[in-house]
């Protein structure tokens, strides 16, 4: 038995473009996440500083990271779907 995928995926011409987008979005999120870890590790008191609406930096940054992941996921899906529809028209996935 070979190691073929269980279901056919067909030819997808948008793969290089989706890969580049994925790497870019991953790097962007990683930088934001690294900022959170760096502040927590090196400047823990700053996490207690009030920033917006009486909320401290820890709460705002923490919730922000979760919401950013969801938002970026939606944007990524929107763009990938558009690439697939445009580039695979006539011989799609």
């Amino acid at each position: 038995m070979l190691h073929e995928p269980i279901s056919e995926t067909g030819t997808d011409r948008s793969i290089p473009k989706k890969t580049r987008l994925g790497i870019f979005m991953f790097l962007f999120y990683m930088v934001v996440y690294a900022g959170f870890v760096f502040i927590g590790m090196m400047f823990p008191r700053a996490m207690g500083a009030e920033v917006i609406g009486g909320q401290n930096l820890a709460a705002v940054y923490g919730f922000g990271l979760i919401l950013l992941a969801v938002l970026m996921g939606l944007i990524y899906n929107f763009l990938c779907t558009r690439y697939e529809d445009r580039m695979n028209a006539g011989g799609a996935e």
Partner: peptide, 24 residues
């Protein structure tokens, strides 16, 4: 919570589709 959720970013942007293409 933050770390567990952030991990999904790596899964989505880098791993999900290529793995689907390659695996069985």
């Amino acid at each position: 919570s933050i770390g567990y959720l952030a991990g999904w970013v790596v899964a989505l942007f880098l791993v999900a589709e290529p793995l689907k293409r390659m695996g069985k």
